[in-house]
């Protein structure tokens, strides 16, 4: 576990210091793991947790899947804040790096690029299926968003021409869309006389499905953008700035 490597003569004095520190941290970690294991092995007050309450209220939630009901109805606050976290993450990542032009002239293997051309529609289809399945079984916005994000990562890795022909503003607006739609639903419920994020029972199913579709789209875009690492430059920006593109230092 010790990754500390000292070199040269100045190490000898510091080595004792560092070994003392690492010994101390080992003792602390051992104590922490013992405490955690004790807490885990001690039986808790209610091993079933909230399962009964979720089941009792499932008929009012608008969906049949219990995880989806928790995510988008009972604890929709969590999902709203999660959309906000994604939005904030994209904002931070984009503001830390200067915008970079989308790479042109794909030098990838033609087999690979045609495979990606086959795979991406399939992935979009699977994402759509997961989204649809989410209302009654395992699946939902997050899984669909992850698949869409993976499709985006494939497109980035093969520097597909689809990226440079993307409509202007799709990225920024698409990433904001999930958060804004969620906020609109939440505030709309207040405007209609309910509580924040409270759905009418009659319209709960439609609201949840709409939220899931929009959230999956935004999550997928955000994940792909995280992989891309910096904001892709708009064509107009490129001609205006006129600076040489710097393609080195691809971010993981």
């Amino acid at each position: 576990m010790r990754c500390v490597k000292m070199k040269g003569s100045e190490a000898s004095g510091k080595r004792r210091h560092i070994s003392l520190l690492s010994l101390l941290s080992l003792v602390m970690l051992a104590g922490l793991s013992a405490a955690l294991a004790w807490a885990f092995l001690t039986p808790g007050p209610d091993p079933l947790g909230l399962a009964h309450r979720v089941d009792a209220a499932l008929a009012e939630s608008g969906v049949e899947s219990r995880v989806t009901a928790v995510l988008l109805n009972y604890r929709a606050y969590d999902t709203l804040l999660e959309c906000f976290v994604l939005f904030l993450g994209v904002a931070i990542v984009w503001s830390l790096q200067p915008s970079r032009p989308v790479r042109q002239e794909p030098r990838v293997d033609p087999v690979l690029s045609s495979l990606v051309r086959l795979l991406v529609p399939l992935m979009v289809l699977v994402g759509g299926y997961l989204l649809w399945a989410g209302s009654s079984q395992a699946g939902g916005a997050f899984q669909a968003g992850a698949i869409l994000g993976a499709a985006g990562v494939l497109l980035i890795l093969t520097s597909s021409r689809l990226l440079s022909t993307m409509p202007k503003g799709l990225l920024a607006w698409g990433i904001c869309l999930g958060l804004f739609f969620f906020l609109a639903v939440a505030v709309g419920a207040v405007a209609l006389g309910g509580n924040f994020l409270e759905y009418r029972r009659s319209s709960a199913t439609m609201i949840i499905i709409a939220l899931e579709v929009v959230a999956a789209f935004s999550i997928g875009l955000s994940l792909a953008v995280f992989f891309g690492g910096s904001r892709p430059e708009e064509p107009s920006e490129r001609t205006a700035a006129g600076r040489p593109p710097h393609g080195e230092g691809e971010e993981p």
Binding site: L48, V70, L96, F226
Partner: peptide
Amino acid sequence: VIIDPVPHAMVLTGIVVSVSGTAVALA
């Protein structure tokens, strides 16, 4: 016996949050 869906939903939310956090940390 009965699976509690609340921690599962929390994990789903947490995965996305951790991915965002990792991306910000890497940047």
